[in-house]
Design a protein around this nucleic acid. Structure first.
Length: 488
RNA sequence: GACAAGAUGGCUGAACGGCUAAGGCAACAGACUGCAAACCUGUUUUGUGUAAGUUCGAAUCUCACUCUUGUCUCCA
């Protein structure tokens, strides 16, 4: 079996991965809050963990992958006293909260599909687990780690910290946190500024609320992940993923809640994906520098020179390691577009290669390198570099400069199918030549005329066609068999 | 301010003490072409923020400095 190493954010070290139950893996990833469109930064995180999921499956593990939908409980303003995000958007749009939730959940799923992410095994929603959340609040209270004030329940961080290291994940010390706490409104109910709401009382103006032992209210944001991961993966599970920006306070609170409810430390390996930046700044909803997937596809954004396909973007993201920041720029995307084209073309060439008797390429070693790359903390950029070694082999064989026998050819095909498609989740995009709309038919006519002109050595006409099409942003690409075209 | 991550060639981005610092893009040359483009092949002498230290050996470890980013309030 393969030895996978994972950079564990809890310890800050690269550790050998050992599942709790051999052959089975439980993985939880914090999903989106469905109150508006996802942006590219969100997409990056989900692609990163999609590849983790895909690789573990590829190795033969049975993986239960849980990714939640947050549809309540995300407070908008400071100090746990603001409005619920979903409820606010519902008021603005004059819709039922669940209507908002459904709309953006659908949109999220569509984006995930377009980027070729696999569906998680379970995608639970916070509103579907209100009872379980109430139960966990009760457990925490009964363990003396939470207190109720005016119908709200707060987690007692100081008390927790007496026996447990609050801040262990993010490397913070409680004294530092205390000394740096800002004075905020709406904290008068808390005994300590670090305390956080696990249940929040709702007045009548709140349009999302449920009955509870403490009156009408709604669950705190951090609670749902603790509850749902426990319910579906057990009190301790293998991998917990999420964006770097969730490390504190969200994941820190999650640990505290699980421990506080008597479950012990919930996660063996914490994985955090790094941020996508734009001109060096974090892409975020609040900064307003986020591209929606649609804008990226069409290029309809001031910072974009043109549109890019989903697979170009997926490839672009996988060319960096999930733990590193990745800076988004037109140059970088153009480079990825070219690179992915080259890879796609080589894949098509691979299908047409014919085996020979002798063999001059080392496919076994290539395959081992691919596994090694992924085993080393899911190092997709290295894997891609090795696949480009494969591209060079494919082209050499195609040019007659190298030979491959049947056994190795089959192995090479399985490497590309396995790592390119199954693991990296890329797919070859079809050109516009297969569809049969009118412009394709017109272009066929034009290219046929040009072909005739070349045949009769009427180069003036052939060049005239090429130049005038070029003026329309249409590029003709000649090859030995036929000419193709594309719009720039 | 506290804590965390980081600074690698023209751009992007790997490496986690040990052969010529990966790969992609760009540039240049060749091959192909009627000529180009595309595809293919090859090449790209000064590149690891600054200054010290540990070591036989440092991009990698230690110290200082400069700068960047993130978290500390909702965010993947």
């Amino acid at each position: 079996m393969n030895n996978i190493k994972i950079n564990n954010s809890l310890t800050g070290k690269k550790e050998l991965f050992k599942p709790i139950t051999p052959g089975h893996i439980g993985m939880y990833v914090c999903g989106p809050t469905v109150y508006n469109d996802v942006h590219l930064g969100n997409v990056r995180t989900f692609i990163s963990f999609d590849v983790v999921y895909r690789y573990l499956i590829y190795l033969g593990y049975k993986v239960r992958y849980v990714r939640n939908i947050t549809d309540v409980g995300h407070l908008l303003n400071d100090a746990d006293s603001g409005e619920d995000k979903i409820a606010k958007q519902a008021k603005l749009l004059n819709k039922e909260p669940m209507e908002v939730v459904q709309y953006y959940t659908n949109g999220f799923h569509e984006v995930m599909r377009n980027y070729n992410n696999l569906s998680p095994s379970i995608e639970p929603s916070a509103t579907g687990h209100i009872m379980e959340q109430i139960e966990m609040v009760q457990e925490i209270i009964s363990n003396g780690l939470a207190y109720e004030v005016n119908g709200s329940v707060y987690f007692d961080v100081n008390k927790y910290n007496e026996h447990n290291p609050y801040g262990e994940l993010s490397g913070r010390k409680i004294e530092d946190l205390l000394s740096n706490t800002r004075a905020l409104d709406g904290q008068e109910e808390k005994r300590n500024p670090l305390d956080f709401a696990i249940w929040k009382a709702a007045d009548e103006s709140h349009i999302m609320q449920w009955n509870s032992p403490w009156g009408k209210g709604f669950p705190g944001w951090h609670l749902e992940c603790s509850v749902m991961s426990t319910k579906y993966l057990g009190k301790t599970f293998d991998i917990h993923g999420g964006g770097m920006d969730l490390k504190f306070p969200h994941h820190e609170c999650e640990i505290a809640q699980n421990v506080g409810a008597g479950g012990g430390h919930p996660v063996n390996y914490w994985m955090h994906g790094n941020m996508l930046t734009v001109n060096g700044q974090k892409m975020s909803k609040s900064a307003g520098n986020g591209f929606t997937p649609v804008q990226l596809k069409t290029g309809d954004h001031p910072l974009l020179e043109k549109g890019y396909s989903e697979m170009t973007i997926r490839f672009f993201m996988l060319q960096s390691h999930y733990g590193s920041t990745l800076d988004f720029s037109n140059d970088a995307l153009n480079a990825s577009e070219k690179g992915f084209e080259k890879l796609s073309k080589a894949y098509e060439t691979l299908q047409s290669l014919t085996p020979s008797k002798e063999n001059t390429v080392d496919i076994a070693s290539l395959q081992q390198k691919c596994y090694d790359a992924m085993n080393d903390d899911f190092n997709t950029p290295i894997l891609i570099a090795h696949l480009f070694d494969g591209v060079k082999m494919i082209n050499s064989i195609n040019n007659g400069k190298a030979n491959i026998d049947e056994e190795n050819l089959n192995k090479l095909k399985s490497i590309f199918n396995g790592f390119l498609f199954d693991v990296l989740g890329l797919k070859i995009e079809q050109n516009n030549t297969t569809s049969n709309d009118i412009s394709n038919e017109l272009m066929d006519v034009i290219l046929e005329i040009r072909k005739e002109a070349k045949k009769t050595k009427n180069y003036a006409l052939a060049d005239h066609i090429r130049d005038n099409l070029s003026a329309l942003n249409i590029t003709i690409k000649d090859s030995k068999e036929k000419s193709t075209w594309e719009i720039n």
